[in-house]
Design a binder for these strands. Structure first.
Lengths: 191, 191
DNA sequence: TCCGAATTTCAGATATTCCTGAAAATAGGA
DNA sequence: TCCTATTTTCAGGAATATCTGAAATTCGGA
């Protein structure tokens, strides 16, 4: 590996973290290098830069394409495939969340739905099903929330994130503006 | 494995998903069983129910304790250790997010901070550092947002999640109530 | 159509993770 | 203190994942 020190440090770190992130060292390093590169790279570039075999790089790139984390292009007059990551880091996060949801959450949601259709035969099963219902409802709420938030333009999203928990004050504001009789007092007690 | 059908299906699913979630089959199944159980279980219970060796269960429980996903208790007049998961699914999610952040994000944030202190020596390094800055700033924004949101009481959090992107209207509302001259018109155009 | 550069596939070598049974360590009660 | 039920550690076997080099395949251009 013969890379500028800054790049090398980042690439090595991503390689090490790969394991924790559910990708392997190769895939982590390839992604890191593409993320930092100021131009699209081809497979040969990656082999040379990272010291992996050609086949390893090929498989790694396939996996990254499976995650939709890299884009493939062709350069005019060059048959080789060139790869790059999106410039927009928010686009990257959106993709990452979608893919992780698809792989790590959706299958469980599907199983939960199936099992909640069953009729429990014993008190133990009944309790188990209640726990599943709690998990199911929570995942639904969280994924609905994300599906909704995800539609916002990036600029607006950043605004909202910057507000943090201060958005919660809106709830107070709303309560004060549109007072529901009999509810206001309860809320006041609670806070 | 001799469990009620509903419980068994859930446990097996968690075992299979374990790999994707960064835990292994054993750990996934142990967690699933504890989550569904209507009483704390001891290691022997888990061995019998899941068919794993005693040592495997011991290691699995240690790992789950490392994730702070299971609680250990003692029952009066019984020397054995009993394990359970919190009843509150929101507490579980909070723990999960904290731990994943600690393992999967914080180390990268730390590396990014270090590398952003360096002075780039070439145009390529300068570009790489800009990419790192973008990633750093985004992670900071997201983690700050979560650290802030995390403080909300669960009830309030659920309220906020239920609102979804409708909270964004607050930004409009705020703009309308507290008009910043020269800004209002720009916003109106944008929407 | 054919050529050859580029990519993919695949068998097998290497490394890592997972799991068990046996032995060692720990800790509550006599 | 000692006894023993319980937990933990650990060496090594089994299973899985990673990586390579060589062979097969693909595909754009002559």
């Amino acid at each position: 590996m013969n890379l500028p020190p800054l790049v090398q440090a980042f690439v090595l770190h991503f390689g090490e973290m790969g394991g924790r992130w559910g990708i392997n060292r190769t895939v982590g390093q390839i992604y890191a290098l593409l993320f930092l590169a100021d131009r699209p790279l081809n497979a040969e570039d990656l082999c040379a830069a990272l010291g992996f075999s050609r086949s390893n790089v090929s498989i790694g790139l396939k996996e990254l394409q499976g995650w939709r984390l890299v884009e493939m292009r062709h350069q005019p007059g060059d048959r080789r495939e060139y790869f790059s990551t999106p410039d927009d880091v928010w686009q990257i996060v959106r993709t990452l969340v979608e893919e992780r949801k698809k792989r790590e959450i959706d299958p469980t949601l599907s199983v939960l739905r199936d099992l909640l259709m069953e009729t429990p035969q014993t008190p133990a099963e009944q309790h188990a099903q209640q726990r599943m219902a709690a998990m199911h409802d929570q995942i639904e709420l969280l994924t609905r929330w994300y599906a909704d938030i995800e539609k916002l333009e990036t600029e607006r999203l950043v605004q909202l994130l910057s507000l943090g928990s201060r958005v919660a004050r809106v709830l107070d504001l709303k309560d004060k503006l549109f007072v529901i009789p009999g509810r206001a007092e309860k809320d006041r007690k609670a806070s």
